[in-house]
Computed example of a mutant assay.
Amino acid sequence: MKNNENILKELKVLFVEDEVNISKLLKDAISDYFFSFTIANNGEEGLEKYKKINPDFIITDIMMPKLDGLDMTKEIRKENETIPIIVLSAFSDKEKLLKAIDIGITKYFIKPFDPDELLEYLVTIASKLNKSRIICLNKHFTFDNNTNNLFEDEQLINITKREKSFINLLIKNKNNITSSDELKETLWENEEVTDERVRTFIKRLRKKTSKELIKNISGQGYLISVDNI
Rank of each mutant, 00 (worst) to 15 (best):
I135N: 01
S218T: 15
L183S: 10
D144V: 10
C136Y: 00
Y33N: 14
E152W: 02
K172P: 04
K184M: 14
F151D: 03
V20L: 15
S132P: 13
Y222C: 04
T209Q: 04
K99P: 00
L11G: 06
K12C: 15
N42Q: 06
N145K: 12
N6I: 14
P112A: 01
V87R: 01
R162D: 04
V87H: 00
L187W: 02
I58Q: 02
K78N: 10
N158P: 02
Y33W: 08
T142E: 08
I167W: 02
A40P: 01
T209K: 02
I217R: 02
E44K: 11
T147C: 10
L119F: 10
D71N: 12
M63K: 15
E120H: 15
D102I: 00
K139W: 06
S179Y: 02
I62A: 02
I22H: 02
H140P: 00
V87D: 00
M63A: 11
D56C: 13
L97E: 14
E152C: 11
N148M: 09
E81M: 12
E5A: 14
L122S: 01
K49W: 04
E117F: 07
Y222F: 10
M64W: 06
E212N: 14
E191S: 15
E79A: 02
L88S: 03
I171F: 07
T142I: 08
E196P: 04
D114R: 09
R204N: 14
K74E: 07
